[in-house]
Design a protein around this nucleic acid. Structure first.
Lengths: 105, 105
DNA sequence: CGGATATGCAACTCTGGCATTGCACATCGA
DNA sequence: TCGATGTGCAATGCCAGAGTTGCATATCCG
């Protein structure tokens, strides 16, 4: 998973309102209009957040009659998490190696 | 780990330049001036990114003579990763439970 | 000492993105 | 059928933050 596909996900998660919406969808799927009733912002604002979350692969949508029901994709979040874990360990091991070399001489 | 401490981290990671700087520090520690020589932006821009990364707990700094050497904290990244993994699994299990209930009736 | 290099602080510009409002169109239900 | 509800599209307002420049201060080294 290249960094190019990673930063958009972080950008999507890095907004309080968007995170709140995503967490809400994690509880149960919902339409944009339903979310607009629960949050103190307009439906259009909700829609834009959903678009961003969708293009980051964090939300999937399905048409049901006149409604568009959105749901949070936990699997995607877990994928990103595993990648982060890997990178974090790499940084620390590199740092340890540098420290070891520095003390050796 | 509350969501309030989670979104600032994502916000910090959600900028390409900042991510590049952090990844660079993951390779080896460096000062702001050194980074400014490697990146196509001013030292002040670098400093602001470092401040943000620092307040997100992703970077730690240490004074060495007249230099301030910054290093990436992989441990912090791993912590966030584990939290994400947990949340992602929760979402999927909740969704599975809802689906099961829906099909049962 | 004095030049070179590193950091710190402040003011400023400017673009991106969060949010709003208004209207048109589709679909459901009494 | 008609009112209510849900989505789609477009124009606009506004502010945070990414980046710049300029200058002052501190530290290293010849």
């Amino acid at each position: 998973m290249p960094a190019a596909t990673l930063t958009p996900v972080f950008a999507a998660l890095g907004d309080d309102t968007r995170w709140a919406i995503l967490a809400r969808l994690g509880e149960a799927p919902a339409s944009a209009s339903a979310l607009a009733r629960e949050f103190p912002i307009s439906r259009q604002a909700i829609v834009k957040h959903l678009d961003l979350l969708s293009s980051a692969g964090l939300v999937e949508s399905e048409r049901v009659g006149r409604e568009l029901v959105h749901r949070a994709l936990g699997g995607r979040l877990s994928d990103v998490a595993r990648e982060l874990e890997r990178i974090g360990r790499q940084w620390d091991s590199r740092l340890a190696r540098i420290k070891r070399l520095a003390e050796e001489f």
